[in-house]
C-alpha cells in the first residue's frame, strides 16, 4: 500500500459513524445568526430603526478565460416584510455615520443618489442605492448596495441589501450579485455592482447572453451599479457567468 493509499485508508477507517452534533443547538444558533444578519442589515442599511433587510453575500469570482462564475456559497438572511421609511434621496452625498443596532444612533441613509431603474411595481419605482455597512473585522468593507422600492410619496422600502463579507468593497471587478429570494413584496431584479470603467455588463444564463443596465454611483464614478431587466432575466434565476467590457469592447 502506498503512503497515499495508507493515508486515505487511515482517514476513512477512523471515521466515527456515531458522531453527531446537537441539532437543537445547531438550529437555535442558526436562527440567532439569521436574526443577527437581519439586524445587521437594518443597521448597515442606514435607513431607519426597525428596517430589516436581507443580506446576500455572493462573491462572483474570476476565471481567466471564461465568463465569471459564482464561486462562493451564498449567505442569506431572508427578510420579513419590508418596512417603509421616509424618502432619503435628498440626503447629502458623502459618508454617513455608521449605525450600530441598539445604540440609538441617527437613522441611516443612502450614500449618494438613489438610482431609478425605470422598472415599476404598480406605482412604485424599483430603485437601487448604496448604503454604508460595517462588517466586523473587515475595515475595507464600508458600502453595500440595496434594492428598494420608492412609493409616489417618496418613501423608500428596502427589499434586499448585498455587501462584501471580506476583502475590499472598492477592489476592481465584480463584487456581489443580489438575487431575489422571494422574501420581499415585489420581485427584485438581479443586481450588483462592478468597480472599474465598465461600459457593458453581460450575464450568461442557460447559454443565453443578457445585457444589464448600468448607472454610475454619484459618489464614486468607478462604482458601476447594474441590474437585469426582469423581462430578460427572471428574478431569482442564477447567472452562469458575467463579464464586463470597456468602451473599446475589451473585457475587464
Amino acid at each position: 500500500m502506498s503512503d497515499l493509499d495508507r493515508l486515505r485508508h487511515a482517514m476513512r477507517v477512523t471515521e466515527r459513524p456515531g458522531a453527531t452534533v446537537d441539532l437543537a443547538a445547531v438550529m437555535r444558533d442558526g436562527r440567532r445568526l439569521r436574526t443577527r444578519r437581519r439586524v445587521a442589515g437594518a443597521g448597515a442599511a442606514t435607513l431607519a430603526t426597525g428596517l430589516v433587510a436581507a443580506i446576500v453575500a455572493v462573491v462572483v469570482g474570476a476565471l481567466p478565460d471564461d465568463p465569471r462564475t459564482v464561486e462562493r456559497p451564498t449567505q442569506v438572511a431572508v427578510a420579513p416584510p419590508p418596512v417603509a421609511v421616509p424618502p432619503t434621496a435628498s440626503h447629502p452625498l458623502g459618508p454617513t455615520p455608521t449605525t450600530t443596532p441598539g445604540r440609538g444612533e441617527p437613522s441611516p441613509s443612502p450614500v449618494g443618489q438613489i438610482v431609478d431603474s425605470g422598472i415599476r411595481h404598480g406605482s412604485d419605482q424599483r430603485v437601487f442605492y448604496v448604503v454604508q455597512v460595517s462588517v466586523p473585522g473587515e475595515p475595507r468593507v464600508t458600502i453595500g448596495l440595496a434594492a428598494g422600492r420608492r412609493a409616489p410619496d417618496g418613501t423608500v422600502t428596502t427589499d434586499l441589501l448585498v455587501n462584501d463579507v471580506e476583502g475590499a468593497d472598492r477592489s476592481p471587478g465584480f463584487h456581489q450579485i443580489g438575487y431575489d429570494s422571494g422574501g420581499s413584496g415585489a420581485p427584485v431584479p438581479t443586481f450588483g455592482y462592478f468597480v472599474g470603467p465598465a461600459q457593458q455588463i453581460i450575464g450568461t444564463v442557460d447559454g443565453r447572453q443578457v445585457g444589464a443596465r448600468l448607472a454610475r454611483w454619484s459618489a464614486d464614478k468607478q462604482v458601476v451599479i447594474f441590474w437585469f431587466d426582469p423581462a430578460k432575466l427572471a428574478p431569482g434565476d442564477k447567472l452562469d457567468g458575467i463579464v464586463a467590457r470597456d468602451g473599446s469592447d475589451r473585457r475587464l
Binding site: 458522531a19 452534533v21 446537537d22 441539532l23 443547538a25 445547531v26 438550529m27 444558533d29 442558526g30 436562527r31 445568526l33 439569521r34 444578519r37 456559497p73 451564498t74 449567505q75 442569506v76 438572511a77 431572508v78 429570494s181
Partner: peptide, 19 residues
Amino acid sequence: AEDAAQTALARTYASWSRI
C-alpha cells in the same frame, strides 16, 4: 471538531432557504 461541525451546520441552517 464537534464545535466546528456545529458552527458549519448552524451557518448552513441560517442560509437554508437559499441553499
